[in-house]
Amino acid sequence: MSGVMLQSCAACGHSWQFRRATCPACGSPSFGEVEAGGGGTVWSVTTVLRAPLPELDVPGGFGIALVKLDEGPRIMCRTAAGLAIGDRVQVAVEDDGMPRAVRAGSELEDAGSG
C-alpha cells in the first residue's frame, strides 16, 4: 500500500486528504480513515530550480507533482524528473512521511535501488 492516508465519507463515498471533521462534499460527520492504493495520474508537475530556502536547492532542481489519486483526491508529491501530465504513477510515502510519485511499473525497480 501507499502509506498515504485519506478520509473517506461513509455517506457519499467522497475521499479527501486534508483532515476535516465533516465530508467536504456532503457534510456528513461519518467517515473513516483509509489508506490510498497509491495509483494515480499526474495532474500537473514542475521542476523547482529555486527553492524557498537555499539549503533545499538541488543541482538540476527537484520535482513536485500534483497527482490525482484513483480514489479522487489530488495530492502533492515529490517526484523525479521526466514525468508528464497524464502519466500513470504509483505514490508511496517515504521515511520522512512525504509521498513520492514514480512512473507506474517502475516502483519495484526504484525500491530495489533505494
Binding site: V45, A51, P52, L53
Partner: peptide, 26 residues
C-alpha cells in the same frame, strides 16, 4: 502552502503557480 502536505516538499509560490501554469499550458 499547506504546512503538512505542501510546504515540506520544498514548494514555493513560484512552484505552486508553476503547477497551475503547466496545467494551463496542457
Amino acid at each position: 502552502g499547506h504546512p503538512i502536505h505542501e510546504v515540506p516538499l520544498g514548494a514555493s509560490i513560484p512552484a505552486y503557480y508553476a503547477l497551475v501554469a503547466a496545467r494551463y499550458l496542457h
